[in-house]
Nucleic acid binder design. Structure first.
Lengths: 345, 345
DNA sequence: GCCGATGATTTTAACGTTCTAACCGCTGTC
DNA sequence: GACAGCGGTTAGAACGTTAAAATCATCGGC
């Protein structure tokens, strides 16, 4: 392995000059810079990150706790979010270090350890929960972090956060369904303690109010984020005295359940009943018909988180980003040339 | 931040003794060890990993390139594999460092750089492809790595690998279907250049031969790993003169497509036509009926990879692990109490 | 031609750890 | 009584880098 010293010898300058060539090239006379650069390339020199970090006490690594979901639940956009994070980190010449930790306060020892041992400079949090204790814990110890997601149920939230406006997302879905002629729009959501669910629900409710659409009895709470739960939730909406002609689901998983329930009854998704999901997971594109879904700007989110963490832009609180509705066959069959048969007799 | 020096002062020993207390406690007299340990705890000392790594030139980090899939394709077990890797790494007091790189040889500069800059000790490769150039490249440069997946199409493969026996997996699925009374078992696979696909296909074919089941015209190649492709593949098998009564899919995605195609035709999955998938992705458990699928022992795989990489167990070549069939309603409706209606008069 | 200012480069001293060799006190051997 | 051996401990150097201070050369102004 080549070191600074060897490069310095080769270029006939001091070690510090080589270091400057890399970290502060403007300090060198053009000709020496050229000479040093040539030597660096010739010897294929790469700075040793450990020595650098020891000296500067910055490791340029960001910790991210790999999320676990209870039971059968799936993180469908995990790939995409991780990829976005990696790319964003690399754009700031950082990297992501993965680790596992128990949920809640129990896990904080792990965070503390990683930071104290200098394995990471800071953390990106995701999967924030109602009354999530991590933010306060980290802030009290002055450990840098940035959060994807708000801590629901608190007045103020320590530290920087980025989140997607779930209410707007669902409201957009409702308006889209209204524009395509739907007049009775049900909602599939989760139990009441999920701040995420309440946020998205509120968007559905307010959009319906504005458009003078009914909401009474049209919000069903599914126990889990599974296809099965989505299907039985949809069944309730379809069995009602006045059945719905559209279903807004606050997740793609629930939406998939709704789609399968609709198909099971011999109805055609997108024709008889429209469905929208949330997350625009890869599955939304590959099911048939395609699932209209609210897409989160994951690249932008990752960018904001990493930039805040690295370049230390001191933004006061957080940023709420606008999601985007991706329309597919489940809500607009004409556009996608959906020719689904399968409707018996 | 507490350092060794401060602990040493507190315990009234030399710096080296504190270091020994942590790295070679057997060298200390029990009473000094106790004294030092008490000081360490009292001062809440954590060794600085950068200094340690600089000295020992081992960073205890393992690089993993976050996989990208062409087009709409999804890595459904990504969460699980990453989690398994993290856990395995932590069991050997390592961590996973994520990065992105272009596919094939183009990406090798990134691997080289990470290694040369001492950001990682070695790599875990996944998503191995036919004639994958990475293995040879890394081996030539003596950069440590371990591969999840074989390099198809080569005589010998440099470096250590772990893989799952796809042939056995599919053969098990075929036998299971045969035991439950199926006699005409179709296969959904991918284009011929995928080694993975050929491996799994061979298991289906050989099991069918042994059981004297037909195979001619019963293997359909889907262009992509999507639900849509699976559905149209299944359609071919169901439209044949002698339609199949079971479908073995070499991925859960194709299996999901098959399930939806079967349902679309008013047939009942698991009753009229049985379906099996591969990977036992989280979706397999949450669709209705549940999807019988071949499960890869991800924890064991991750363990083997990490152990090989860290503890440097010099195994000659690689290990082929046995997958396990997880039976659900799509192939054994009785067991799961599947009461699906929806079969139109 | 001296002085201070400016710019380019080098010297010195860390950063916090571990490795190597040396040291110390004790025991047992010849 | 000299000496080897041993367990326990420590001093000194090294790992490869960068920050801060010091040095040296150059130059314009008076």
């Amino acid at each position: 392995m080549t070191t600074l010293k060897q490069v310095a010898a080769h270029a006939e300058v001091s070690v510090q000059t080589v270091s400057n060539a890399l970290n502060a090239p403007h300090r060198l006379r053009p000709d020496t810079l050229a000479r040093v650069t040539r030597s660096i390339e010739l010897l294929n020199y790469r700075p040793n990150r450990n020595a650098r970090s020891l000296r500067t006490s910055a490791v340029e690594l960001i910790g991210y706790c790999v999320p676990t979901w209870p039971g059968d639940q799936v993180h469908l956009v995990m790939d995409q979010f991780l990829h976005a994070m990696c790319s964003a980190a690399e754009a700031s010449s950082r990297h992501i270090l993965l680790f596992t930790a128990p949920a809640g306060l129990d896990g904080m020892a792990v965070y503390d350890d990683l930071h104290a041992r200098r394995l990471v400079d800071g953390f990106v949090l995701s999967q924030t929960e109602t009354h999530d204790p991590r933010h306060t814990w980290l802030a009290e110890r002055e450990i840098p972090f940035a959060s994807f997601g708000r801590v629901w149920g608190e007045q103020t939230q320590p530290g920087y956060w980025v989140d997607v406006d779930g209410a707007t997302g669902c409201a957009t879905a409702v308006r889209h369904l209204h524009e395509t002629g739907r007049r009775r729009i049900g909602l599939l959501s989760w139990p009441r303690l999920s701040g995420l669910a309440e946020d998205r629900l509120s968007g559905w409710r307010s959009a319906c109010k504005v458009l003078r659409l009914p909401t009474g009895g049209l919000a069903v709470r599914c126990r889990q984020d599974t296809i099965d739960e989505g299907a039985s939730g949809a069944a309730k909406l379809l069995d009602a005295d006045q059945p719905v002609d559209a279903i807004v689901a606050i997740s793609d998983m629930l939406a998939l359940g709704a789609m399968s329930e609709i198909a099971r009854r011999g109805l055609t998704v997108g024709v008889d009943v429209a469905v929208t999901g949330f997350d625009d997971s890869p599955l939304a594109a590959v099911v048939s018909p395609g699932l209209t879904s609210v897409s989160q700007p994951l690249d932008e989110i990752a960018d904001a988180l990493i930039r805040q963490l690295c370049d230390g832009e001191r933004e006061p609180a957080g940023r709420l980003l606008e999601p985007q509705l991706v329309v597919r066959g489940s809500s607009a069959p004409a556009d996608t040339g959906n020719t689904a048969g399968g409707k018996p007799s």
